[in-house]
Write a protein that binds this DNA or RNA. Structure first.
Length: 363
RNA sequence: CCCGCCGUAGCUCAGCGGCAGAGCGCCCGGCUGUAGUGUGGGGGCCGAGACCGGGUGGUCGGGGGUUCGAAUCCCCCCGGCGGGACCA
């Protein structure tokens, strides 16, 4: 199955702009034997924002690398996390919207969609969940929780939150996948799945983790000091609950421009800079891409970059002004990234769907 | 996936190259004679805890190695706990 050259080119594709893969050797093993099945679970929680594009692109690359990919609409999980007010009808609507976006990325009929309802409907699912629970101590589950830590403490969380990691692990076994895709924030759940897989003598997933985008708002030093860690984390991640902090695939070019221009973007600084983050993980993505910064000749005139590293170096050196970076990133997003998706997703027959989702997240 | 600590009696742990240990528990006995049982008094019977005495306790997590000798040192594995793991 596939020559050595084939395997290496697929490796390169999968490893492109990835935060980490656990483990790279296991991934190679899968590619050498012809791929396998992969999945990503997402919580339908509102409109699709460009932070999600990072995993969506990776999802497409996994398809290209020969994996049979499953998109798990984690509707029950969204319910547990009180997304969209726990309104299942809305949650399912948001899930359809995500499917629309993937289709817009040229993936129509190239992946399978599974709703959590389908999984959860069988007794087998719950049997597996109990088996997983039998092999996992409460302390271990607690350590796998992303949401809360020691601060926003357990007495305030309803118990369903503790079932969540077990469901993530169960999803993996029930879907019988070889690869789990997710943002690096999913690492804990995936590691739990790997631990349990050994005990249960099930397939041990290869975990592919993509980077996360910081909020357009960034964060001030004051906030860092005052917010509890986990809340801060939630703040920093690009979040749908704060519309101004994220760019949605349904945003107009004007929206995009306004949001990017309003973004946190300290000159010469890379750390926590959301605009550079977009350039790195949404535009360049670890490959050669033509990216031109248009600027008045009095500021140096237009300059074209092919590699993110060169752009970052010049930005750090102060040769690129935040204003020019923002304008160019906004332009690129509007024309090359969001534009094509928007035209597919915001069709008339989806108007009602989008309106409902929008209404739900702003209320 | 990475780092650290731990795994010895049913439980909590000590021992860390030279006889496998303590406390608790459990079993037997003694002592005591409480609560309960009784309408009350008296008596009888059953009889807990505490205390005293005796007894019961083990593949020293598994496997390999080093050694005259391994719970003890080394390696591998399994299990538990804590931490880390984008951002903090």
């Amino acid at each position: 199955m596939g020559t050595a050259v084939d395997v290496e080119s697929k490796m390169k594709l999968v490893l492109r702009d990835v935060e980490e893969v656990v483990t790279v050797e296991e991934l190679r093993g899968l590619l050498e034997t012809g791929g396998g099945k992969g999945y990503i679970g997402f919580e339908p929680s509102g409109l699709f924002h460009i932070g999600w594009l990072i995993w969506a692109y990776k999802f497409r690359e996994l398809v290209e690398a020969g994996f049979r990919m499953v998109l798990l609409a984690a509707t029950w999980h969204a319910w547990i996390n009180d997304k969209l007010g726990g309104d299942m009808e809305l949650i399912r609507a948001a899930a359809r919207h995500v499917v629309d976006v993937l289709n817009a990325l040229g993936l129509e009929n190239k992946f399978e969609v599974v709703y959590a309802e389908d999984l959860v409907d069988s007794a087998k699912y719950w049997e597996t969940l109990i088996r997983v629970a039998k092999l996992t101590s409460l302390a271990r589950v607690r350590r796998a929780l992303t949401i809360m830590g020691r601060k926003a403490d357990e007495s305030e969380a309803d118990f369903s939150k503790f079932v969540y990691p077990l469901m993530q692990v169960t999803d993996i076994f029930e879907l019988d996948v070889d690869v789990a895709l997710g943002g690096i924030d999913q690492r804990k759940a995936h590691m739990l799945a790997r631990d349990v897989a050994e005990k249960l003598e099930r397939k041990k997933i290869v975990a592919v983790h993509t980077p996360l985008l910081p909020s357009l708002q960034g964060f001030s030093k004051m906030e860092v000091g005052e917010l509890p860690r986990d809340e801060l984390m939630a703040e920093v991640k690009m979040s749908k609950s704060k519309p101004e902090s994220a760019i949605f695939v349904t945003d107009s070019d004007e929206d995009i421009r306004a949001k990017v221009m309003g973004a946190y973007c300290p000159p010469r600084e890379v750390e926590g800079n959301p605009v550079l983050g977009i350039a790195k993980h949404v535009i360049f993505r670890g490959s050669e891409v033509e990216f031109t910064i248009e600027r008045p000749s009095k500021y140096g005139g237009p300059v074209t970059y092919w590699r993110y590293e060169d752009l970052e170096r010049d930005y750090v050196d102060g040769r690129i002004h935040p204003m020019d970076l923002k304008a160019s990133v906004a332009e690129y997003l509007a024309k090359k990234v969001v534009g094509p998706i928007r035209s597919c997703v915001a069709r008339p027959e989806r108007e009602e769907l989008l309106r409902k989702i929008r209404a739900a997240i702003t209320r």
